[in-house]
C-alpha cells in the first residue's frame, strides 16, 4: 500500500501544480474558477487516497461536504460574469 500512496501522491502533486499554474495564468476569472474546481476534485481524491491507505473513515464527512460545495464557487462567478445575464432567450 505504501507504494500506492507514493504513486498517487506524486501524480496528484504534479496535477495540482499544473492547476496552480493555470490559476495563476488565467487569463479570465472563469478559467481560474474551472481550474479551482478541479483543484477541489484533486483535494477530494487526495483525502480519499489517504483514507484508503490508512483504512480510516474520519475524513469521509469532509468528502461529502466538498462534493456538495465544490460547484458553488464556479456557479457564483459564472452568474456574475459580464455578458452572461441569466435571462432566458424566450422572446427571441
Amino acid at each position: 500500500m505504501s507504494a500506492v500512496l507514493v504513486c498517487c501522491v506524486a501524480l496528484l502533486t504534479v496535477a495540482s501544480l499544473m492547476l496552480v499554474v493555470r490559476i495563476s495564468w488565467g487569463p479570465t476569472m472563469l478559467d481560474r474558477v474551472v481550474a479551482l474546481d478541479v483543484l477541489v476534485a484533486v483535494v477530494i481524491c487526495g483525502l480519499a487516497v489517504e483514507a484508503a491507505v490508512n483504512r480510516h473513515t474520519t475524513t469521509l464527512p469532509v468528502l461529502v461536504v466538498l462534493s456538495l460545495l465544490g460547484f458553488v464557487g464556479s456557479v457564483s462567478v459564472a452568474r456574475f460574469t459580464q455578458g452572461s445575464d441569466d435571462v432566458e432567450e424566450e422572446r427571441a
Binding site: 507504494a3 498517487c8 501524480l11 496528484l12 504534479v14 496535477a15 478541479v38 487516497v49 484508503a52
Partner: peptide, 19 residues
C-alpha cells in the same frame, strides 16, 4: 490499489488538459 492509481492518473490527465 489499482483503482487508486488509475484514478490519480486520470486526475493528472485532466490537469494536463486544463493546462
Amino acid at each position: 490499489g489499482v483503482c487508486l492509481v488509475v484514478g490519480a492518473l486520470l486526475t493528472l490527465i485532466a490537469a494536463i488538459g486544463i493546462l
